[in-house]
């Protein structure tokens, strides 16, 4: 089996803060991102997500632990060729146009002039900044800068892409385009690590969500699994509890809500029919979708149950 695209093993980082004791930004964090996998780092501001990303790229020195990209030292220049990084709010030389910035980065990756230009033009077009790409970067909005940063990260068709808040500053169309882009990256086997506060988007595109708080990795959640649960609200669920448990042994019940693992959304009619035949008064039936938000609030608010079981 080939090495993971990205692997952090017990990585820690402390920041020296003038005069006071050092702040632990990342504390003994370990995780992997495999080829073809989209992994999200989730957590409140100051959780250590961006620092973890910078440690993964050797943009910061770690105090402890190991970082490997494709099983190699991230400092190796050849490894860097296989990686793309789009930082939060990137800044580019003010007097260069977006196209020139991309041509520079393409040339640094070893593309010849013609390849660099055609690739840069195609990416500007794909990310909806073809017109802005011909203007100097000094006049870019945050969203345009964000898209240019993303275009720069995608230039070398990287096998591993790290995206720091990729949807911050994007309009809804940009967010949708980003979702499409991530799906495309996964389809071609690229590994993606992103951090975002847009949980609904993360839920749609990510395979794994990693919850961080105070520099610690609290919980690893397989998004794909929770996406295949149906939630049914039943008015008389309390009265049917025993019967439902016999029919659906794996079902979870809470109040009037029943949560059932299903293969896909197409299983919903059969489930509704089964419950109806059992005498259930169904109020609402839908695919479960807001799992991440619940998990997030639970972890951020420190309710603890998940943190206790959460080894990654």
């Amino acid at each position: 089996m080939s090495a993971p695209a990205l692997e952090l093993v017990a990585v820690s980082k402390r920041y020296a803060v003038g005069g006071s004791s050092p702040v632990v930004a990342v504390d003994n964090v370990s995780f992997q991102v495999q080829a073809g996998q989209v992994v999200a780092l989730l957590g409140p501001n100051g959780a250590g997500k961006t620092t973890a990303m910078q440690l993964a790229l050797a943009l910061l020195d770690r105090d402890a632990g190991e970082v490997r990209l494709f099983g190699e030292d991230p400092e190796l220049l050849e490894v860097r060729r296989r990686v793309g990084f789009a930082p939060d709010a990137p800044l580019f030389p003010r007097r260069l146009t977006g196209l020139e910035v991309l041509e520079l980065h393409a040339a640094l990756l070893g593309l010849d002039r013609a390849q660099a230009r055609s690739r840069a033009v195609a990416l500007l077009d794909q990310l909806g900044i073809a017109e802005a790409g011909r203007r100097p970067c000094s006049g870019y909005s945050r969203g345009q800068g964000q898209r240019l940063g993303l275009a720069s990260a995608l230039l070398g068709e990287p096998e591993l892409l790290l995206l720091d808040e990729p949807t911050a500053g994007l309009d809804p169309a940009g967010v949708a385009a980003m979702r499409e882009l991530l799906s495309g990256l996964r389809a071609r086997g690229a590994a993606v690590l992103l951090n975002s506060h847009l949980l609904s988007e993360v839920e749609k595109v990510c395979d794994v969500a990693l919850f961080m708080k105070d520099g610690k990795l609290l919980h690893r959640h397989a998004v794909a699994e929770s996406a295949h649960r149906a939630e049914v609200r039943v008015a008389n669920l309390e009265a049917l509890r025993v019967k439902v448990s016999q029919l659906l042994p794996d079902a979870r019940m809470s109040g009037d809500r029943l949560s059932v693992a299903v293969q896909s959304a197409s299983a919903m009619p059969a489930l509704v029919k089964l419950l109806d035949e059992a005498g259930a008064q169904i109020i609402e039936a839908k695919m479960e979708g807001a799992m991440l938000e619940r998990l997030y609030l639970e972890i951020v608010e420190g309710k603890g149950a998940l943190a206790a079981q959460g080894t990654v």
């Binding site: 860097r80 990137p90 580019f92 520079l104 980065h105 640094l108 990756l109 070893g110």
Partner: peptide, 10 residues
Amino acid sequence: GHAQLVLLRP
């Protein structure tokens, strides 16, 4: 911060 982006290249 552009230097850091450039230095991520080979």
